[in-house]
């Protein structure tokens, strides 16, 4: 109890630094490697250096950024691109809903939570949900600010450096960079699934995506997402009803 009181008295800045240090962990390094792949993708799509760095800081959600660059490659209009990105980012809402009660201390202001919510993305969320219970309630916002801002700034630097250097790489290594993003998504998404409806939705989506890409190129992501997601949900519900009946 005494140790806890001592921790409560420690300055917020120290907890900010602890959060920053938590960014340099295995999930943090995996995220960096997938931003390496993203930077190569953005350069191939002819998104400029500063636009790519800016996108990383201001969007800060790798799936959304990949969808956005995909819309740039496809030559989609601003409206269609915004719609596809918005639909790929709905999952941010439940993630934020889940983390807000963890972050909120006795005197946390609303504006602080709105500000910190910008840093919510798969990796910082997974790390925070694991580590926040060990942080005193009044220092959780400082800890998460350290974690989120360090991850974001580090990856902005990574993205900028890779953008400049990627052309100097041998072709095979460059190809391997483009493999990092899909592999990271595939495994981390599968692992974060809470009910098997999500896993089934993944299987449907991964097959429907390319099929819709050929059949309805302008709306491939939207149709694959809705058809795959709703289909998986209906099967999940029917299976549960049968079991409980």
């Amino acid at each position: 109890m005494e140790a806890l009181n001592e921790a409560q008295d420690e300055p917020s800045f120290r907890w900010y630094l602890r959060g920053a240090r938590a960014a340099y962990s295995i999930p943090g390094f995996i995220l960096m490697s997938s931003f390496v792949g993203f930077s190569a993708l953005a350069k191939a799509a002819d998104v400029g250096l500063w636009a790519t760095v800016f996108m990383t800081g201001i969007v800060w959600a790798l799936p959304a950024q990949v969808v956005l660059v995909g819309a740039v490659i496809a030559g989609n209009s601003l409206g269609a691109a915004a719609l596809a990105v918005a639909l790929s980012s709905v999952r941010l809402t439940p993630m934020v809903v889940a983390i807000v009660p963890e972050l909120r201390g006795p005197r946390t202001r609303g504006i602080t939570l709105y500000f910190l919510s910008h840093f919510v993305a798969v990796t910082s969320w997974v790390l925070a949900m694991a580590k926040l219970p060990d942080v005193p309630a009044s220092r959780r916002t400082a800890f998460y600010f350290g974690l989120g801002s360090t991850l974001t700034l580090t990856n902005m630097i990574v993205v900028g450096c890779v953008y400049v250097l990627v052309d100097a790489l041998p072709r095979e290594l460059s190809a391997a960079l483009f493999m990092l993003t899909p592999m990271y998504f595939l495994t981390s998404l599968w692992g974060s699934a809470r009910e098997w409806a999500t896993n089934l939705a993944m299987v449907f989506g991964i097959v429907l995506g390319p099929v819709c890409h050929v059949l309805v190129p302008s709306f491939d992501l939207l149709i694959a997402g809705f058809a795959g997601g709703i289909g998986a949900y209906v099967i999940y519900r029917l299976a549960h009803r049968r079991r409980s009946a």
Binding site: S88, S89, R91, F185, T198, G205, G209, L221, G229
Partner: peptide, 17 residues
């Protein structure tokens, strides 16, 4: 559950592509 399923299928479609 439905929201997560749709969001996941959408990102999975990106993976497939």
């Amino acid at each position: 559950v439905l929201v997560r399923a749709i969001a996941t299928a959408l990102v999975a479609a990106v993976i497939g592509n």
